[in-house]
């Protein structure tokens, strides 16, 4: 298949919580320009896998290759320095601040401590425009006044603003209505088309099939399937998730 080096490649990653093996020799790779979906039932190890990539909960064993080079991900700092960003399910936005403030939170542009509001406003508006966001009217709105979909858009745009190479989306559509889900999925697609590696975690197979290029399935801590969307079906994936079917992972 694709000969280019994956942005991230995990080899034989393990993680135990006491006697419980949460990740068992997991292999996982993510390519630039693709949406990679990570699916699995509750407790399959999806969150643990992601927390390892985010540096929040380092893996016990295994190799992590970033653009072909072995790296360590022991702290959130290390992974954000590499350009890995997680957009969490609970969004982590400050309701009392506006969109510009939220997109630059913790990384404000300033001259000797004094904020450069103009530069931040332009960059925030440019980023939203580059993602063809049409749902957000003004970048100076308070986040509290935004709908769920708009908030998700701001959270994703923040990840884009910082030129991250890998954007991990944790259940981005879980709390959204039909129309808003559609908008966010389109945004996810555009994100990948712009050359970023996108990982999406979702319970909703319809969403996964709408947007993903490649689907990885975790079952009780094991990676039981790694398939291209074009080469599989929803029924097969349901089989992998429930453990009724397995595929030899050899990619």
């Amino acid at each position: 298949m694709s000969t280019e080096t994956p942005v991230i490649e995990l080899k034989n990653v393990k993680k135990n919580f006491g006697p419980v093996e949460v990740l068992k020799d997991v292999n996982f790779s993510v390519r630039a320009g693709e949406v990679t979906a990570l699916v699995g039932d509750n407790g399959a190890g999806k969150s643990t896998l992601i927390k390892g990539l985010a540096g929040i909960q380092p893996y016990d064993q295994g190799t992590i290759l970033f653009e072909g080079n072995p790296v360590e991900l022991k702290s959130p700092r290390q992974s954000s320095d590499l350009g890995i960003d997680v957009v969490y399910q609970d969004l982590a936005l400050c309701d009392n601040l506006d969109i510009v403030h939220n997109m630059f939170l913790g990384r404000e542009k300033a001259h000797t401590g004094v904020l450069d509001e103009g530069a931040m406003e332009s960059k925030a508006a440019d980023t939203l425009t580059s993602l063809s966001v049409r749902t957000v009217k003004s970048v100076r709105q308070k986040v509290a006044r935004l709908s769920g979909g708009q908030r998700q858009t701001v959270a994703i745009a923040r990840a884009v603003l910082w030129n991250n190479k890998v954007v991990i989306l944790d259940e981005p559509t879980a709390a959204l209505g039909v129309a808003q889900t559609e908008q966010v999925l389109q945004l996810v697609r555009r994100l990948a088309d712009s050359g970023k590696a996108v990982i999406i975690i979702s319970h909703n197979l319809q969403d996964v099939f709408a947007v993903a290029d490649r689907i990885y399935v975790l079952y009780l801590g094991k990676m039981t399937a790694a398939v291209k969307k074009s080469e599989t079906s929803q029924a097969d994936v349901v089989g992998y998730i429930t453990g009724a079917k397995t595929q030899e992972v050899g990619v």
Binding site: N96, L97, H101, R107, V114, L115
Partner: peptide
Amino acid sequence: NRTKFGRHVYAVGGNAEAARRAGI
């Protein structure tokens, strides 16, 4: 209103967890 520190004060007051995740 005009300094990084001031912005961080509002951020911590609005959502301390979000502020922490943003590296504040």
